[in-house]
Design a binder for these strands. Sequence first.
RNA 1: GGGGGCGUAGUUAAGUUGGUUAUAACGCCGGCCUGUCACGCCGGAGGCCGCGGGUUCAAGUCCCGUCGCUCCCGCCA
Length: 586
Amino acid sequence: MYRTHTAGALNLSHVDQQVTLAGWVDRSRDIGQLCFLTLRDRYGVTQCVYETSDSEDSTLSLLKTLTNETCIKVTGKVRARTEKDINPEMATGTIELVISEVEILNKANVLPFQVRDDISVSDDLRLKHRYLDLRRSKMQRNMLTRHRTIQAARDALCDMGFLELETPLLVRSTPEGARDFIVPSRTNPGNFYALPQSPQLYKQMLMISGMDRYFQFAPAFRDEDLRADRVPVHTQIDMEMTFVEEKDVFLAVETMVRKIFQDVKEVSLPESFLIMPYHEAMERFGNDKPDMRFGMELKTVTSLVNDLDFKVFSEAECVRCIVVEDGSKVSRKDIDSTLLDKAKIYGAKGLAWSRIKNQEFSGGVAKFLNQKTKELMEALELKEGNLILFVADSYQVCCAGLSAVRLALGSQLELIDQSQYAFLWVNDFPLFEKGDDDTWIAMHHLFTHPKAEDMQYLDSDPGKVRGQLYDLVLNGVELLSGSIRIHRADLQKQILDIVGMPKEEAENKFGFLMDSFQYGAPPHGGSAIGLDRLVAILCGEDSIREVMTYPCNNQGIFPLDGSPAPADQHQLDELGLIVKAPAKDI
RNA sequence: GGGGGCGUAGUUAAGUUGGUUAUAACGCCGGCCUGUCACGCCGGAGGCCGCGGGUUCAAGUCCCGUCGCUCCCGCCA
């Protein structure tokens, strides 16, 4: 071993012991014939000190050459610091290591960026030198949190009798929503595997196999455009259960999530989480993943304002609004620029506003609203000083626009308690939505079981059918998606008919699943948690990249190894591939 | 596919209506310092101002193009 202890281990009980530490130079402070250096490893930081009366001393000279992040081994005796030299900020601040010997294991060159928490460096540079970025204590903490989250989830699921099983990573391209990553087969020229978008079909068949309860930390691959919280590969805590209904899945998930928050954050979550149907979420928050940490709910006023002498309102399909309690905190400039911009992103053409002053509307569109002062004041329960913000458009645009405005106000007015974890189940999603060309498309995926009481509308009015579908939302972030699945071939065929998938295509793409339904497939259901998003929230990070070891950048490029890269000609030849597009230079 | 923002030493930034030798902090190199802990003090090196073109007596600054990064919309159940 290179070391006898770690850099976080030493305390007063080790005084006078001879120890050896190995790690990186966190900082060195050269005070002439006195020299301090702080040595860092995953476990902490320990101050090492060397003093001499000989200015030609070889150890002293060596210490003076140490640059930050040089990898070293230090041997010496632990000494208690004198009262005035104790550093209360440091976990090891009561002691120091008196250096007798230093060995440079590997020198560090001039660093591309400093390894410390208070840096602001471009993400690209951080990713190019991710090994250095991960040395920063914040990143070390994030990785530890990730590890603990996985550990707690595994403990909880194993306790509940789930089996941890793996499903294939080279699979058939599936009829799911996102674009597949495809992998050419050398042994079967002209044929391709797909990387799984989720273990969906394979975990369903594990239930058919009688595995009863399964889970897996599963990579999920999707070849779509990226975002701050979206990368081509993310990890799901994927689970599936047999002979269960929605509430049974909720219970299992809640048990696991409670264990995670207890173990990782020492936070006790409530016995059960709030449940809200999709339609209620849209009505109250304009969003299917509402942030429940603050109110400011949306209201609909279409019928009250459509006879006003104001074309924008009278001709709109829908008029919705939100009420800001203390309107004085929102300036005209906020409304006309910041908030309007938010609403515009989602297609709103404007953001009408007015304030309540002396028991009537004042400013903005007041002259129109005051045709119905009393009715509006009562319907919206308006009070002195309120600010009302309206969007008039389709129901979808009203919801999306005002929901964005609500979130912007929530953060601007600091209405959000950052210490709170507000969980919410959203369920009863519609099974289908109308596509562009008037066809029905599955809102979630094709394997979701309709709600029993809505099955009667499958033929007559698919838009009315709700699925046994649920999302778990945490602080406005969609953490989990799941459903009770179809387990009978006849129902599965009916669903495929409704979305107009040709029989041949269905047979080709997942006939194997349909087949499996024919041998006593049991009722089953499950869910998948976005592990990266969960860990990001636990770490207080906005981007999931902060909790992944080696994420790619926003262009899908990983600056460290330079992937993706062109394939060698001999690789292409073996695969029988001809590249038509010239390789983009990256 | 569409829109917004940013590209200046190793890093993060400043750079005025276009006008001397392009600044600062941290880092790096050298010197001084025996209780520092963001050590301090003195000195030094370090620049294709992303790239290409244009306007001008003169461009880091203005214009056009391009490349890179980033955030968002579409897309992603």
